[in-house]
């Protein structure tokens, strides 16, 4: 850091380098957004799936679970729960519906959210839709 390398040279590297990589990142983001329709299963986003995402968010499911590996690590991964539950939306609904209000002594338990039948259907369809996104083969196996 001595000799002829001056502060203004360092500043120019900062400005030039960041500008270049911001531009490149935006270009790649643009390309990704264009490529997504082939991968993100968007043609299957029904009103029900959209409501399912809303139910997912309004109950802060991501506060315990991960979805495609993102979220909390307290409860199982759910991007492949549809597959894990034998490709049955009924099994997903049954699990959510049957959570005991006061939990299970000594163990982790999902709260009882008192979802309506419509909300249960929606969140199950949302998880089914999520399981059909092309996510480069993640997770490694059915256990999530």
């Amino acid at each position: 850091m001595s000799g002829t390398f001056t502060k203004s040279m360092a500043r120019n590297i900062f400005i030039g380098g960041s500008a270049f990589f911001i531009f490149l990142f935006l270009a790649l983001s643009f390309d990704t957004v264009r490529a997504l329709p082939e991968r993100d299963n968007r043609h299957n986003i029904t009103d029900q799936v959209a409501l399912g995402k809303k139910v997912w968010e309004d109950n802060n499911c991501v506060g315990c679970h991960s979805l495609m590996g993102e979220g909390a690590y307290f409860a199982p991964e759910l991007a492949n729960v549809y597959d894990r539950f034998g490709k049955s939306t009924e099994a997903i609904k049954g699990f959510i519906r049957s959570r005991p209000v006061d939990g299970i002594p000594g163990r982790r338990s999902m709260p009882q959210f008192n979802l309506s039948e419509e909300e249960l259907d929606a969140v199950a369809q949302f998880l089914k839709w999520t399981s059909e996104i092309n996510d480069a083969g993640w997770p490694p196996n059915i256990q999530g």
């Binding site: 802060n60 499911c61 991501v62 506060g63 315990c64 909390a72 307290f74 409860a75 209000v101 006061d102 939990g103 299970i104 002594p105 000594g106 163990r107 982790r108 338990s109 709260p111 009882q112």
Partner: peptide, 14 residues
Amino acid sequence: GDFLFPEIPFNVAR
């Protein structure tokens, strides 16, 4: 797992 459940579930604490 049931510590403070259901008053403060894990997602709320987090």
